[in-house]
């Protein structure tokens, strides 16, 4: 339990994604400074592939993806 907790804490932050708002423009994926976002396999109701975090441990929660997202569908947050 403790080790798991430790591993989770390695990431300094994370991203939250509202799949339904995504229009699949790919801005967040292209401009993520750590390149840890990618299109997911799943579809949303409009038929776009929303992004997903592929490397949880490295996310710094910098919120660059949030600033780029034209659809207000993703944002990053640092862990407190």
């Amino acid at each position: 339990m403790e080790t798991k907790e430790k591993k989770k804490r390695k990431a300094k932050g994370t991203v939250y994604i509202k799949d339904e708002l995504c229009k699949g423009c790919g801005f967040c994926i292209e401009f993520c400074p750590l390149h840890i976002l990618a299109f997911s396999e799943k579809f949303n109701a409009k038929g776009y592939h929303p992004p997903e975090l592929i490397d949880d441990d490295r996310c710094s929660g910098c919120d660059i993806c949030g600033m780029y997202c034209p659809d207000f569908a993703i944002f990053g947050e640092k862990f407190k």
């Binding site: 423009c25 949030g66 034209p70 944002f75």
Partner: peptide, 29 residues
């Protein structure tokens, strides 16, 4: 968590009409 920009937007109006790949939403952000 809620997107910190949500409280500035009329979320009942989303998704907006801007095309995929349009930059207006980024500027609003």
């Amino acid at each position: 968590a809620e997107n910190p920009v949500d409280k500035y937007l009329r979320m009942d109006r989303m998704p907006h009409i801007w095309c995929p790949g349009c930059g207006i939403g980024s500027t609003v952000n």
